[in-house]
Computed example of a mutant assay.
Amino acid sequence: MSSEQANTKPRVLQLGAGPTALSCLEALIEGFQVVGLVRASEDADGERDATIRRAREFGVPALRDDGLGALECYIDELAPDCVVVSSHARILPVRLLEKSRFINVHYAPLPKYRGRANVNWAIINGEPYVGITIHTMVPGLDAGKILYQEVVEVREDDDVATLYDRLNSIQRARIAAIVRAHLNGNEGASQDERKATYGCTRIPEDGEIDWSRPASEIQRLVRALVPPFPGAFTYFQGRRLLIWRAEAVIDPLCYEGRVPGRVVSSSRKTGTVDVLAGDGVLRLYDVQRDSGERESAAQLIPSVRGTLGLRTSDLLARIERLERLLSEQTTVSR
């Protein structure tokens, strides 16, 4: 394709920080002149970032996400016909929204689940489906007109990674046509504000397991936080333990004495560990110590004498050890 032909395509600037940005970029490159990808990266040169590497392969400038001021400068300099946002945490002010057309890709069936961590919250809350909504951006959180919407069933074996894969596939298939239709005059349909709900921000600490909760609820928390998210976690012998795969046991044995978090079975044959929850039993498959490797649960928890969760006795034992070390160091220094 000649540079003259490329220049006749609509100019699009993409803004995206999270795991949905790559499929969006790949779709836009085919039908638009993507004048830049605005994206923060954990490494300075972006070489470990698949989205930035893909942009460079197609000659799309990777622009550092240095805040709203920098974004305003990018828009003024590049003059895009449309800014497409896919995975971005900041709320854009009116002064920015007035500079171009803005389209946002939101992984929820708006007006439900406006805000953040929508797929995670949907799994945690036991929703039967998640969704993708492509909408115009206006002042107000995810409040623009709907250009396209599709729902996706949450299957029993789904986790947040498999759902993101399916939603990313829909985005890849639909986003270019939706952007083109909007530039050609499609303004979309207004949302029903009376039905709006909101998902609050999640932080890694929210992944701590409360073993007094139902086993099915804990299982959903585990499924909601697999990579690229930081994982559901508990404590074992006073140290943090990530739980990567678990399932509620169907028709478990009935325990008259119930201590939530107590290990009731550890099988070398299957590699699994059964743990009491508030109403049943959760079976653990894959676990990981902080800074360790993934391993089968039974390798790490071989005995039924263990209890998961941070207990007062664990904290007191740790305090006693620290006091003893401090005392020994003080004695040596004298």
Rank of each mutant, 00 (worst) to 15 (best):
L242C: 14
N186Y: 11
A40Q: 10
L308T: 02
P10F: 04
R294H: 11
I132M: 07
R180S: 04
F236T: 02
Y164R: 11
G278K: 01
S291C: 09
G67C: 11
G18T: 03
R324N: 12
D165M: 10
P227S: 15
L326M: 10
S23V: 04
L71M: 09
F32T: 01
A232G: 05
G46W: 02
D165H: 15
E323G: 15
V332S: 15
E323F: 11
L68Y: 10
P228Y: 09
A50Q: 14
R114H: 05
G188A: 08
I103N: 00
V273C: 06
V84C: 04
R90L: 12
A50R: 12
P61Y: 05
E205S: 11
P61M: 06
E47T: 15
L92F: 05
H135Q: 07
L316S: 10
R245E: 13
L225W: 00
Q329D: 14
M137R: 01
G188D: 05
G16N: 07
A297K: 02
V179R: 00
L96W: 07
S100A: 08
Q329K: 11
K99A: 03
V38I: 04
G257T: 09
S3K: 10
Q329E: 15
L37V: 05
S23T: 14
H88Y: 15
P302A: 11
A117T: 06
K195M: 14
G309N: 10
R56H: 15
W211C: 03
S87A: 13
Y107D: 01
Q14M: 07
C82R: 04
C82E: 05
